[in-house]
Design a protein around this nucleic acid. Structure first.
Lengths: 133, 133
DNA sequence: CGGTATCCGTCACGATACTG
DNA sequence: CAGTATCGTGACGGATACCG
């Protein structure tokens, strides 16, 4: 260790750190929650199942690719169930699972906190930007 | 409207949508919470004020740039206060504000939910990946 | 010690076009 | 109607080097 460079030591710390981060459940969920479209899809499905095209209409801002990608991710994590009806035309419904519903209280609590304190944050920003000029 | 192409209509929806999203307090806070380093810095400061170099040691995985960038962001939003002691060598302390402390319960609730359900999510993933092969 | 500026690799996102 | 594949772009993170 004595001959180890500071850079090298730092490199090792980083590896430890990233390994640690990868195992962190909190961060995993956090990254899911922070997904721009994921949150919106979950909210949209909160009231009940929807077809792919319905989601596309409600979300609107999402490209077809992002919508599918988000839904796949949610399905993979067991947060939504995907029901395919093989007919002409094909029909696919998406529905929130119990696990998926569990996300809603968290979303709501964040939203509540956000709406309570967002103006304080905005004011802080203005003050900060004013001092910095 | 009658002569408007579907593509054009979609474009307008998207603009509406993005404008809406930009104003959404929930998403603003969400994007802050999802910041990889921001969360860690807030957690590190939860127990009390720390110097820049202390944070660097604790976080370890963060580059100097990311650390400073994160701290600036937090400071700008009024979540931490930055105290400079002009001496040789210079000393800078960071401390959570009341607003910053408000973030902790949210982080904790996410962490709790995550640790409760992460194994269910992992199992769902394994199942999904197994079916897809 | 604390902070800034610059360059560069990576990857998520979006637009488009095509398949079943 | 639902989904996949491909390509271009732009924001973000990291490494390095340099000021106060």
């Amino acid at each position: 260790m004595a001959t180890m460079s500071a850079g090298h030591k730092r490199e090792i710390s980083k590896q430890d750190y990233n390994a640690n981060l990868a195992e962190c459940a909190g961060h995993e969920v956090l990254s899911a929650l922070s997904d721009k479209w994921l949150t919106l899809v979950v909210s949209a499905l909160a009231d009940g199942p929807l077809r792919h095209s319905e989601l596309a209409r409600i979300i609107a801002g999402a490209s077809q690719k992002m919508l599918t990608q988000t839904l796949r991710k949610l399905e993979r994590d067991g947060l939504v169930v995907r029901t395919v009806t093989a007919s002409v035309p094909p029909r696919v419904d998406y529905e929130l699972t119990a696990l998926g519903h569990g996300l809603l209280p968290i979303q709501r609590s964040i939203k509540t906190w956000a709406e309570t304190h967002i103006d304080a944050i905005h004011k802080a920003r203005v003050r900060y930007d004013a001092n910095g000029d």
